[in-house]
Amino acid sequence: MASETEGGKARKVKPEELLETQKDLAAGYISLEDLRRAGNLPPDDIVEKGLPVPIFDCLENIPCTPCHDVCPTGAVVMESMIDKPKVIWEKCTGCTLCAQACPGLAITIVYPKFGEKRLKGKRPDAEKLWLVSIPYELLPIPKKGEKVRVYDRGHRYLCDGEVYTVIKSPRFGTVLVNVLVPGECAFEAKYVEVMRE
């Protein structure tokens, strides 16, 4: 049914068109550059060592402390409830508890060089694969071994990934999808979509 408006007949829009608008914080889009500027990306030597790194898409002083409360090693520092979480990179063991607890589903954990360390000899592309742990609370839940489409923070398609494991947090109910992706997309990977029909 057409609609008459002051500006004449309004144009029907395709959903994809709307996605291209306004990629900035004002419209809820966080860029990798925003994270870098805020100090939320790990220094090179940590990544070089292959230590697990939690990426906090958390840039505001909001009253929220679960990540700090659950961290068993004190790697997430917060002085008052409205502080932004600060990560002590060396202390993180990659246990994922913060990613399970985060109400904003804002934390992904990147395991640099995961393939090189854990999958060598098991598959030919092992060397280039890193693991990313992505919180997920939608349906359908990805399955182990399944191919998924991996997206960045603005739903830009990055690469295909392979689901390594899927863990449902017994305490928080959030699902963590652990997905193998080429190392170069690991820090940008923030969302997965199941390809099943």
């Binding site: 914080l25 419209a27 889009y29 898409d57 904003g104 997206y151 960045d152 923070r153």
Partner: peptide
Amino acid sequence: YLVHASKIRR
């Protein structure tokens, strides 16, 4: 909250 908004953007 940016965390809520960015969740739907991605």
